[in-house]
């Protein structure tokens, strides 16, 4: 059976791959959305921190002998702590200023971090092996699905919806949301708002690093892997609605699928399709698909 001249099996395969890429978009845009939603910072360093996550996994494996599973836990903690250091020493001075200042600062940081890694590791980067437990794959009939990619989908869905649940459905989450609406009032209730903000930024950064570790076995670990991705991820956040948690998850996955379909029907356009959608969405719904007008 064919759909527009493409065998349905091939189409299924491409959709699945779109979903895998969408998972990366979802985790990264989720981190961005949390940071923007709660801190009002447009975190341009997100791509660099994602790259740092991947490199830390590589360094852990090759210099310290820590395997993939340890890296998956340890790297987000380490990079998240680095993020908190940035927040404490630099970002906290910018909350009262226009968004642009945060954007410029984090953009500068991204360039510095990238430059340092480029200086140390060169541009071709390093290769990270797929963990043994997840090597090989399943033959689904219509395609060969590497076990590792299946793992990526599963774990990112768990992490994304877990984060959504914490923020939208728990008491801790309600503090966070209250903190963005009215920090003074929340402070009056005896909650340490600055600490909460620091931890939130750390969590957003940890998500980026987590995505970096997830990506390390499938992409070449190189200093520009973040800057290649970050623009797309920003488009995802804008389409989903800046600061909307659920919006970023759903849009991330959805746009992964659309990009996958474009690769089947007109591959040359696959790099632009997301931006075309972004343009249309901004014209029709400036606050994004899931965003609220403020």
């Amino acid at each position: 059976m064919d759909i527009f001249g493409i065998p349905i099996q091939a189409l299924m395969g491409q959709l699945l791959i779109g979903l895998i890429n969408g998972s990366f978009y979802a985790i990264l845009s989720l981190g961005l959305a949390i940071i923007f939603g709660l801190l009002n910072i447009i975190n341009f360093a997100h791509g660099a921190l994602y790259m740092m996550g991947a490199f830390c996994a590589w360094i852990g494996l090759n210099w310290l002998g820590l395997n993939y599973w340890v890296a998956l836990i340890a790297v987000p903690v380490v990079v998240g702590a680095f993020g908190m250091l940035i927040e404490r020493t630099m970002l906290k001075h910018l909350y009262k200023l226009d968004h642009l200042y945060g954007l410029l600062l984090t953009f500068g940081l991204a360039l510095i971090i990238e430059g340092l890694f480029r200086y140390r590791f060169g541009i071709s980067g390093e290769s990270y092996p797929v963990p043994e437990l997840l090597a090989g794959g399943f033959n689904l009939g219509f395609m060969f699905l590497p076990k590792y990619r299946a793992w990526v989908i599963a774990v990112s869905l768990v992490v994304c919806f877990g984060s959504w649940f914490i923020i939208e459905r728990t008491k801790l989450g309600s503090y966070l949301r209250a903190g963005t609406e009215n920090p003074q009032l929340l402070q009056a209730f005896g909650i340490n708002v600055p600490l909460m903000i620091t931890l939130t930024y750390g969590f957003g950064v940890a998500l980026a690093a987590f995505a970096g570790v997830l990506a390390a076995p499938v992409l070449q670990v190189n200093p520009v892997m973040g800057s290649n991705l970050i623009i797309v991820v920003f488009a995802v956040v804008v389409i989903g609605g800046m600061g909307s948690i659920m919006g970023s998850i759903v849009t991330g996955l959805g746009l992964g699928l659309i990009e996958g379909l474009t690769k089947v029907f007109y591959p040359e356009a696959s790099a632009v399709v997301i931006f075309v959608i972004m343009g249309i969405v901004l014209l029709l719904r400036p606050a994004g698909l899931f965003g609220r007008e403020r």
């Binding site: 992409l219 690769k263 591959p267």
Partner: peptide, 20 residues
């Protein structure tokens, strides 16, 4: 042949076409 945007990062779709 299939043409991919330059630079790319995920080539699995193109590889799948090549496989097919």
């Amino acid at each position: 042949s299939v043409r991919h945007p330059f630079p790319g990062s995920d080539f699995s779709s193109f590889l799948l076409s090549a496989q097919a």
